[in-house]
């Protein structure tokens, strides 16, 4: 039978190994965060959910995709029980896109299938995700957080088109092609 000291020694050796493994995992995440800027979407920005229609940004006429004056592609989406406005957004492939989302009522969330786009949409806040879409086609953008009985019917489409088919109008706006 092993002595108490032998047992303690093996346990401590294992503890060191476990500690080293935890350290490696932490360093890998830190490296991804600092060197590759892989961070969770943490855009701390508040907005009054009851007055979205009075805000400059999330009025109905300003929703959807728009190329800003500085050339940045921004899509603005309102998630509401039980639909997205607009229900389809057009984005160019291989070009950084900033998605800004908010809710006037309850908690929602989105992911875009086949991409790393994923964020919660919490009333009172503007969620922001930056992404570059690499594949063209219609991607599903469902609400992924329970928001009420109609939750399952709540989804939208992200239409990714090649750069040459992305033709914003004079105001910089671009809407989905007829499907």
């Amino acid at each position: 039978m092993k002595s108490e000291r032998d047992i303690l020694r093996t346990e401590l050796q294992w503890t060191l190994a476990v500690g080293a493994a935890a350290g490696v995992v932490s360093l890998a995440i830190l490296w991804a965060s600092l060197a590759h800027l892989i961070n969770p979407p943490s855009n701390f920005e508040t907005i009054d959910p009851a007055a979205l229609h009075l805000s400059d940004e999330f009025t109905e006429s300003n929703l959807g995709t728009r190329v800003e004056a500085d050339g940045e592609v921004v899509t603005r989406i309102v998630a509401t029980q039980f639909a997205f406005a607009p229900s389809c957004v057009l984005v160019p492939a291989d070009r950084p896109v900033t998605m800004r989302l908010t809710s006037p009522d309850v908690i929602h969330g989105v992911l875009v299938t086949g991409t790393n786009v994923n964020t919660m949409i919490v009333p009172g806040y503007v969620s922001q995700v930056r992404a570059t879409f690499r594949t063209t086609g219609d991607l599903l953008m469902p609400c992924h957080e329970y928001c009420g009985i109609g939750h399952s019917q709540m989804w939208a489409v992200v239409q990714v088109v090649p750069a040459e088919r992305f033709k914003p109008d004079a105001q910089g706006r671009a809407a989905c092609e007829k499907r």
Partner: peptide
């Protein structure tokens, strides 16, 4: 994935989460 917290506190709690794996791995051994 929530908008109401900054990356700093998310990172801090992530680091502590790595540590909670330690007692499980000690137990397995």
């Amino acid at each position: 994935m929530d908008p109401e917290h900054s990356t700093g506190f998310k990172f801090l709690q992530m680091t502590l989460t790595v540590l909670v794996a330690v007692p499980t791995l000690l137990t397995v051994f």
